[in-house]
Amino acid sequence: MASISTLHFRPCFPNFITTRSAKRISIHHRFRITNRISTQQFKQQCITSISNIHHQLVTSIPMPQFLLKNQNNIRSNLPIWVCVAVVVLFASLRALSISRKKERPGSVADLVRRGQLRSDRRGISRNLKYEDPFDNPLVKVNKNKSSVEMCGKVYRLAPVTLTQEEQTVHQRRRSRAYQWKRPTIFLKEGDSVPPDVDPDTIRWIPANHPFATTSTEIGEDFAHKNVRQKHGVPFRIQAEHEALQRKLEALQSEEELNKAVINPTIAKEFERPLNSNARLNDHAEKSSSNNQQKDPLSSKLDNGPNHFESASSSSSSSSSGEDENLKL
């Protein structure tokens, strides 16, 4: 587009002007100059002549036939062209996303690109079962067993000279040097030593130890039982579930009792299309009074970050009770 506009307003002759027309223009200009006309008129003449030449060029260049022929077919082939455009767009977007993925810093592809990782060594190995690493083609022992070639490098083999006696001597030395008893009790600094415990078997753990603690929430028997459990629901999940179930049942029974005495909420439900504002106000009053009556904790829970009961404002008090249980 830029080149076309440049062509339009270029003051000199375009390259594609035929030599005959150029000669005619130059004669025309020479004629005007020799007649000593004013520069303003000369400029005007130039502009008009150039525009005329341009007009002649445009009209003289014939329109390609296939364009003229397809001009009518473009409308009929519009879906095809749309499909082609979509495909091109999709391909370009995909190429863009792949290139971005490759450029992500820290990825393996990025490491390969930067030469940190050799791409030919990224192969996923097969499951080579029972392949003896000693009888590997990469391990070649010479006939007199004095040298070995591994991965293309030749090494001399030296026999191990450690004897059983030497091992025993080392074991005796270590048993003399390192007198150690396995700690049987772990105590936090500041704890009192139990009376019947060997002081050598106590391990003192600092109170601010980064990953070890002497206190535990769960008893040893429970822990042992949990480790041995092979099927079913884990202990803690089961316990939590049962606790929730019990609380839910208790709330439901409480709800039934409330229903037996008075049932103002159900009566209000039918008034919804008539005066919704009044119902909402009533419900807000009711829920606040219920929260205060039931459990002071539930009001705290309702204000929690994951609380959704206040937004949905379900009418039945049983559902609100259920949500409270779930939060526990």
Binding site: F134, V148, A158
Partner: peptide, 26 residues
């Protein structure tokens, strides 16, 4: 390869009887 050989020895409760101590130029 050395890790594979070590694993093989571990399975068979084996130990090394010779070590590569020196590189011989070809």
């Amino acid at each position: 390869l050395a890790f594979e050989q070590a694993a093989w020895r571990l399975v068979e409760q084996d130990s090394m009887q010779a070590v590569m101590v020196e590189e011989e130029p070809k």
